[in-house]
Design a protein around this nucleic acid. Structure first.
Length: 633
RNA sequence: GGCCUCGUAGUACAAUGGAUAGUAUAAGAGUUUCCGAAGCUCCAGAUCCAGGUUCGAUUCCUGGCGAGGCCA
């Protein structure tokens, strides 16, 4: 038997065909849960078909309802019509049979379909430790991969590490200049944090050095060591700044530009560029520092990844892939997709698509980000010929990803149509945006520590697991802390910008991970005490359901559909909302009805079945979110 | 300058074009001889503005206002 929702849509389609010879797709049928104030379980909205059927909504409802009940093989027990809403009552037997047949731990999983999906997520830079924004990315990527798995796909998780470039050289240079040979071992600082500290150290030095340069530029004075072209531009900007009627915003823009030029003109930035050049030339001294410091970072990342549960089947390193893609520029030139300007630079014209012209190769023949991305996309496809390729990347890259897909299409890349940018919004603090310059960036490791600490405090306060060993407690605090954090970040629609309120995030009441974990632990406790488990289940014999019993079963039956929709939308928040709602329904049921001491034996068996499947579904829904559930807490 | 995204109770989040727009949190009041009170029950408050399409608009279209982002 298929899920009741799909069944009812199909049945409606058949009814419309049989009664009015109307051809509609089952997917066009609007199906809602019946509002509690009306009688019925599911509602078909008929307004949209009224005109074609040439019936009044009321009459049509009567006809379609009668036909559906008569042709439902006993699955429907009745109907009523209010305006154009056809309320259908599903037979009790359907729900009871559903429970009896589907009470298994993997309920909701679809059989393998052989289709390949690649999910790229996390994608850190190696100059700084992970922060709150990365956490949203990691949790989303992992969960979306999991959703694909549950829906039968063959999934490969991948991570592209941005391990080269100016930003890395900044950390390296600061270490060489000021580090005095410091290592993670000598300082006791986690590798990624140590490298991040040197990055900050560099930025501080840069600020000191650029201040007098900016001062000079603001006064139109020449700066030693500045290239002629830049110096000329600075002078133009300076002159513009002197204009009397210059609007304030414009002046601020020019000042920013001068600031940037001042930064670039500092001796330390010139050293960085030298270092990058040496890196590209394969200078062994530079490379050895680079390898050593990246090694520290990877050790640090591994620790954090293990902690937050991120894992990958394949890793790509930008240092291996940054030269890829140039060959496709040649191809594109030959096929006329790209064109060359007089100065030798290569472009693509996307004005017909409503976008701009986009540079794909600089006049000096070096590639830009988009060039590398084309090359990497192709490489990924060669390594794993996927049907869909999901990129979990922030929404500031929307334009870039749009362009990437367009170019791949125009180049005739076979994977182009399968590219999906899972674009997520930034995580803000209640005070506004996180800014590294103002030191408001929330560090991932610190945050995890804090979450676990709060979990420990609350657990001790309640004192329900006094018999746990130290090791068991540690696991529990981790389970609860990560549960709260992951749920908090995943319960929101990914594409929306969200606010991270530290106080709310560690709340364990209401719409939170620990609330759901608690509900699970409570069910487990009941099942334990009742001596109920998969091996010694009894068959269900009851044929009547109380309202809350039915409400729970109805909700449980929707789980596979929720997983499917969440996968289709690449939106784990559907699962989070569902899990919370299910836990709440169970808690209401639990308060209202006694499970182990039910009024009758057949009632007891029914409720134990309900409790068991509820706990399986809660566990599975949470697993999709990357959250573990404790048997006790 | 051009393009894109988002505006829902005090706050944070929901709602494939459907019925009286859901939920959490913050305040108050209940609730423990019985399966776990991190629970349950009761009590208020919102779709940025103006048009349009539709039987029906938080949702789609146009124009404003506001927030954020991207491209040169």
């Amino acid at each position: 038997m298929m899920l009741i929702g799909n069944y009812l849509k199909n049945l409606t389609q058949q009814a419309l065909q049989a009664l009015y010879e109307l051809q509609v797709e089952a997917a066009q049928v609007t199906l809602n849960e019946t509002k509690p104030e009306f009688e019925g379980d599911y509602t078909i909205v008929l307004f949209q078909f009224v005109k074609q059927a040439r019936r009044s909504p009321e009459q049509m409802g009567q006809e379609v309802g009668a036909w559906m009940v008569a042709n439902s093989a006993g699955n429907l027990s009745g109907f009523n019509v209010i305006k154009g809403f056809l309320n259908l009552s599903v037979a009790e037997s359907y729900w009871i049979e559903f429970l009896g047949q589907n009470n298994r731990p993997d309920f909701g999983a679809q059989p393998a379909n052989g289709r390949k999906v690649m999910v790229e997520y996390s994608s850190p830079n190696t100059n700084k430790p992970l922060h709150l924004g990365h956490l949203r990315n990691n949790f989303l990527g992992w969960s979306v991969a999991e959703l694909y798995k549950w829906n039968g796909y063959d999934v490969r998780k991948t991570c592209i590490v941005n391990d080269r470039g100016v930003h890395i050289c900044k950390s390296m240079l600061a270490w060489k200049k000021f580090g005095e040979g410091a290592t993670p071992e000598s300082t006791g600082i986690k590798g990624d944090h140590l490298v991040g500290d040197f990055y900050v150290r560099f930025e501080n030095e840069l600020r000191v050095q650029s201040a007098p340069v900016l001062e000079a530029l603001m006064q139109g004075q020449p700066v030693a060591g500045m290239e002629a072209e830049a110096a000329a531009k600075a002078l133009v900007l300076y002159n513009k700044l002197q204009e009397a009627d210059l609007p304030q915003e414009k002046a601020a823009e020019i000042k920013d530009e001068l600031k940037e030029m001042a930064r670039n003109a500092t001796p330390i930035m010139q050293e960085v560029r030298q270092m990058l050049l040496k890196w590209e030339q394969g200078d062994e001294e530079v490379l050895s520092v680079w390898r050593m410091m990246n090694g520290w970072v990877y050790a640090g990342f591994d620790e954090t990844y293990r902690r937050i549960g991120s894992d990958f089947e394949t890793m790509y390193y930008e240092s291996d892939t940054y030269l890829l893609g140039k060959e496709y520029v040649e191809e594109g030139l030959a096929s006329g997709v790209f064109y060359r300007k007089e100065d030798g630079s290569v472009w693509i014209d996307l004005t017909a698509e409503g976008l701009d012209e986009k540079l794909v190769l600089r006049k000096d023949g070096t590639s830009v980000y988009i060039t590398q991305d084309i090359g990497l996309a192709k490489k990924k496809y060669q390594d794993y010929p996927m049907e869909q390729s999901v990129y979990v990347i922030g929404d500031e890259q929307n334009y870039h990803m749009h362009v990437l897909q367009l170019i791949c299409k125009k180049l005739g890349m076979p994977f182009a149509d399968g590219i999906h940018h899972l674009s997520y919004g930034m995580v803000d603090l209640p005070t506004g945006r996180m800014k590294s310059r103002e030191g408001t960036v929330v560090d991932a490791d610190d945050l995890c520590d804090e979450m676990e600490k709060v979990a420990a405090d609350k657990t001790r306060e309640l004192g329900k697991v006094a018999d746990f060993t130290e090791e068991e407690l540690k696991v529990l605090y981790h389970t609860l802390g990560m549960g709260a954090l992951k749920f908090y970040l995943l319960r929101v629609d990914p594409k929306k910008r969200m606010v991270f309120n530290p106080e709310e995030s560690i709340d364990f009441h209401g719409f939170t991970g620990p609330f759901i974990q608690y509900s699970y632990a409570r069910i487990q406790s009941v099942l334990r005490k009742a001596g109920w488990n998969a091996q010694q289940r009894q068959a269900i014999t009851i044929n009547q359901l109380l309202p809350l019993e039915k409400k729970l079963i109805v909700q449980m039956e929707q789980f596979p559909g929720v997983l499917q929709a969440a996968c289709q939308d690449m939106n784990p928040s559907h699962v989070a909302n569902y899990a919370f709602s299910l836990a709440k329904t169970f808690n209401a049921f639990y308060t209202e009805h006694s499970i182990a001491n039910a009024e009758s034996e057949e009632s007891r068996v029914l409720r134990l079945h309900i409790s068991e499947l509820t706990s399986s579904i809660i566990a599975n829904a949470m697993r999709v979110l990357g959250i573990a559930v404790p048997a006790r807490m």
